[in-house]
């Protein structure tokens, strides 16, 4: 028993040295497998018990690794979460632009009010004030979304670290669109329903017109 324990420690130290003091799940699995493989010949009841426990541990690690890999942390950390953050940033920009337009209209109302009689002036100023007050939504929305983006950024870091630990490098490749070769009849609803595009990726009306005229 003593010899086996020493072997485990030696092996762990050896792995730590080789991997700059960071041991991934793969390395742990390797150590446990090697220890199990080294238990041969006459074994005591205690050794058998240890072997069972190690076997169970190995199975648990394998299962955990499979489950974590199924979550595809690398894909989420590399593509999905940054995409979600970009969508949220676009919400902030969109609401800011909308609020600016509302306030421009409110300013214009205020200017028009000066040319009206007192009663109309007062009413228009009141409406203009209401529009300015309502524009507060942009500030509140912006702050809430920024909080979510920060959380996503933290999650992105953790998922990348987890992906590195389990050796996951499964990332969906960005497939360039080649519209001419697609079978549109075979495409599912989900493939068409992408929602609004981010400004930097979106095609403007002129590009759509040009594309439309091409077919």
């Amino acid at each position: 028993m003593q010899n086996n324990t020493a072997t485990v420690n030696d092996r762990i130290e050896n792995v730590k040295e080789n991997f700059d003091n960071k041991i991934s799940i793969d390395e742990v699995t390797q150590v446990v497998s090697e220890v199990m493989g080294s238990i041969r010949g006459d074994v005591t009841v205690d050794s058998l018990h240890l072997k069972d426990e190690l076997k169970e541990l190995l199975s648990y690690i394998d299962q955990a690794k499979t489950e974590i890999a199924a979550l595809r942390p690398k894909e989420y950390g590399t593509n999905r979460i940054p995409e979600a953050s970009n969508e949220l940033d676009a919400i902030v920009s969109g609401t800011e632009a909308a609020a600016e337009k509302i306030m421009d209209a409110a300013d214009e109302l205020g200017t028009l009010a000066e040319k009206c009689d007192d009663e109309t002036n007062n009413r228009l100023v009141e409406i203009s004030t209401n529009l300015f007050e309502a524009s507060c939504f942009q500030d509140i929305t912006g702050q809430r979304v920024t909080k979510v983006v920060r959380t996503l950024s933290h999650l992105e870091d953790r998922l990348s670290a987890l992906a590195d630990a389990i050796g996951d490098d499964d990332v969906d490749e960005k497939i360039e669109d080649d519209d001419r070769e697609k079978d549109y009849d075979a495409m599912s609803n989900e493939e068409f329903l992408n929602g609004p595009q981010l400004e930097e990726e979106a095609q403007d009306q002129a590009a759509i017109d040009a594309l439309f005229d091409d077919f």
Binding site: E96, M103, A106, F132, E133, C136, G142
Partner: peptide, 17 residues
């Protein structure tokens, strides 16, 4: 003082009124 230009504009306008 505000980092959102929307809010700066709102407060400035309300103060003006």
């Amino acid at each position: 003082v505000d980092d959102y230009k929307t809010m700066l504009r709102i407060i400035r306008n309300l103060l003006k009124q």
